[in-house]
Design a protein around this nucleic acid. Structure first.
Length: 440
DNA sequence: TCTGGGGTCCTAGGACCC
DNA sequence: TCTGGGGTCCTAGGACCC
């Protein structure tokens, strides 16, 4: 501490945090699985009609994220378009994390194609520098998974993130504390992880353009003018280690959300309720998979021009069964649904999730009925596991797969009548746990 | 950005209590 | 019910991320 010329950063033990980012992850997974696709322009997202992930070859040809299929064909006629296959991507994602865990248990699975890892203290045991360890991991990943990853290595998460983005694909950027300012100088403030549109607009007003401009602001000013997470980013830009890694595997969710857009927009009440009902079913399915029960649910409808109307509903008892939720949802849906409105999507968010172990029975729930419901859903989940997620749906969700407008066009009056009866008032189905097999 | 489908955390402000 | 000051809990909504 006597030598005041030394940067402060060296006076405590620095961390070595690594951020690893899969290059064009989904497209790369496809190329890895089918080597004939290597070196060719590949995009995924065909089922949505837009480019979700682009191989570097497709990017070179000028294809952009979010482009429509017709535009893509024009821009790059020999493009290969594939539907997203999340099962495969998740599998490769798991293998990705497993490889990194061979070096350190301190791995945070940040998203399907990204992770953070803490290498602190590994230099001696491995007899390598942090940079060499990162290189080794990068090589392992490429050899074993068949595509490339970009890596950032620095003192904390925010800086490691800047590193991994610095050079892509297959980049490896180490940002030591004493050279941080060189990188921050070239980094626009809105490109920093955690600083979005609103915050950068505010910072721009104060003449802050680059990450370095921001890092140099006085601590008091930052504390007084910005909220806590931004203050923490400021600290990390100054070399502190603030954001800890979340190493535990993810199994407890704060909320579970399912939403779905349909085209064209519709104002058919039965159809829209079915969509909502299907989302609730899917959200419940996920909740049951994680043994969670919700105490509240938000439902929302999104109109053609992106106005949302939502409603939070408290549930009398924590549950993960659509049959128990739908009766509470139905009257609320009636309230918020507007006849003269065109809707484009619906959604459901399960909230206040708790473990489904010993949910308290309230006085009005018949234990026998509940037991039956449980058994029923156990078989439902089993069938879905065996034969696919979409084999079985609640009667109330019927129109989500069978738009009544289409039925009207194709069926005889008698058939139409029968269809309408089945889905007519969703309430009809609510108290009867009735399932319909839907052939797809 | 003519717009997909997930998530997380933070803050202000109201309700209610002493 | 003109009036303090302090605490806690909850909710709505914002901002951000992939």
């Amino acid at each position: 501490m006597e030598n005041t010329d030394q940067p402060l950063i060296l006076s405590y033990y620095p961390r070595a945090i690594m951020h690893i980012d899969g290059d064009a992850f989904f497209a790369s997974c496809e190329q890895s699985r089918n080597p004939a696709l290597k070196g060719k322009p590949v995009i995924t997202g065909k089922e949505r009609g837009i480019a979700a992930s682009l191989s570097y070859e497709a990017k070179e040809k000028g294809v952009k994220r979010g482009m429509r299929l017709s535009e893509i064909k024009e821009t790059c006629p020999n493009v290969i378009m594939l539907p997203s296959d999340y099962e495969t991507y998740s599998l490769l994602s798991k293998r990705f994390f497993t490889i990194v865990r061979r070096y350190t248990p301190d791995v945070e699975e940040y998203s399907i194609d990204e992770c953070f890892a803490d290498l602190t203290g590994l230099q001696r045991p491995l007899n390598m520098t942090y940079l060499q360890i990162a290189e080794k991991i990068q090589k392992d990943l490429e050899i074993e998974l068949g595509f490339t990853f970009s890596i950032g290595l620095s003192l904390n998460k925010v800086m490691a993130k800047i590193g991994s983005k610095w050079k892509k694909p297959a980049g490896l950027t180490e940002i030591p504390g004493r050279f941080m300012h060189l990188y921050l100088q070239k980094k626009l403030i809105n490109e920093v992880w955690g600083i979005g549109y609103q915050t950068s607009a505010f910072l721009n007003k104060w003449g802050i353009k680059t990450a370095l401009d921001f890092a140099k602001k006085k601590e008091e000013w930052v504390k007084n003018n910005l909220i806590k997470p931004i203050y923490e980013i400021w600290q990390e830009l100054n070399g502190k280690y603030i954001f800890k890694l979340t190493v535990e595997e993810k199994h407890n969710y704060q909320s579970i959300q399912k939403m779905k857009t349909f085209t064209p927009p519709s104002n058919n009440k039965n159809f829209i309720f079915s969509q909502l009902s299907k989302n609730i079913e899917n959200a419940c399915m996920k909740a049951r998979r994680y043994k969670l029960a919700a105490k509240a649910i938000i439902i929302f409808l999104r109109t053609q021009n992106f106005m949302d109307t939502g409603y939070e509903i408290k549930l009398s008892r924590p549950t993960s069964f659509p049959n128990e939720i739908l009766p509470a949802v139905s009257p609320i849906f009636d309230k918020i649904f507007q006849r003269n409105c065109q809707y484009r999507s619906t959604g459901a968010i399960l909230l206040k999730l708790e473990e489904d172990k010993e949910i308290q029975l309230d006085l009005f729930t018949d234990p026998l009925k509940l037991e039956k419901l449980k058994k029923l859903y156990q078989s439902v989940d089993l069938i879905r596991e065996k034969y696919g997620k979409h084999t079985l749906h609640l009667g109330a969700s019927f129109f989500a797969n069978h738009n009544p407008q289409h039925i009207k066009e194709r069926s005889t009056p008698l058939e139409r009548h029968q269809h309408l009866l089945k889905g007519e008032t969703p309430r009809k189905h609510l108290n009867i746990p009735m399932f319909m097999g839907v052939v797809e």
